[in-house]
Design a protein around this nucleic acid. Sequence first.
DNA 1: CTTGCTGCAAAAGTTTTGCACACGT
DNA 2: ACGTGTGCAAAACTTTTGCAGCAAG
Lengths: 159, 159
Amino acid sequence: MAKAQDATGSEDLMFQPLCAVFRRFLKREGLKFTPERAISLDAVLAKENVFEAGTLYDEIRTAGHHVSRATLYRTLKHLQDAKIIAEVLIDSKQAHYELCFGKKPVGHLVCVDSSQVTEFTSPQIEELRDRICEEHGYEPVSVRLVVYGVSPQARDDNV
Amino acid sequence: MAKAQDATGSEDLMFQPLCAVFRRFLKREGLKFTPERAISLDAVLAKENVFEAGTLYDEIRTAGHHVSRATLYRTLKHLQDAKIIAEVLIDSKQAHYELCFGKKPVGHLVCVDSSQVTEFTSPQIEELRDRICEEHGYEPVSVRLVVYGVSPQARDDNV
DNA sequence: CTTGCTGCAAAAGTTTTGCACACGT
DNA sequence: ACGTGTGCAAAACTTTTGCAGCAAG
């Protein structure tokens, strides 16, 4: 269990393939791999679903680490550039993100009652992206699909 | 041309079917049709594309009318409830809206370079919404589809 | 040692809210 | 009259930025 406790801020992070991806990205861009960036990436990797910057900040603090809000926001931007996370458009008030590395584009099903977000996949998402872009002469970059509905569970609660 | 210049704030507004829709909605909800709401609706009806609250505010002021920001935001909320406008998820910083009354759900094609927004329709949008909801036992409410790409025009500019 | 990075505090921008007064219905 | 609506100014929030000192490559 005695792993080198180094500047990464986490004993397990170094074994995450995504950590290497991020380090390569940073090097390629002439940027630096700092303890704060390691802590931030670690917190992101712990998320299984959509998350917000504020939540991530709180979780980092709760875990006993310290990364300032400013640094966290700056790191989230780099993680987007590195294509490790992507923005998810849930609402217009606040940014939501999720891990996207190596994944095909996914859609999100949001319960209008409980705000619970469920991810789903469908080949039609990419088809639609490419077809629409082709029809308009655009070069495809990305897609966001969000479906809103009432979950069975929320409907039961409101009887 | 001598139309009654009344509390609606616009001579033409009363002839807009959507004005009647809004008035009926307000009455049904026990709310009031005020000059400020008339001016706001009028400004919304003049928009042909996606718009933001801030732009709308400026346009109302430029047109020589006065509606406070607070009232405009409150009215936009009612217009959403009345299903006259709908939020469009372009980015997570600021709300974007568009007229939606009597329209099927549409998608939006956004140029990542110029931020220009083009609307498109596709029967697949509704199909997808209903299929996904059915698969998860959800009751469908709405959908948002945003495709990002580089417009031919933006590509030319960046050569 | 050179560049970039961090934290802090302040700024910026959008949206919301409390309150006193005004106004549709 | 009653219950809403309005404006204003302040508050609430998320995100960004300037700057002085600090650290990774």
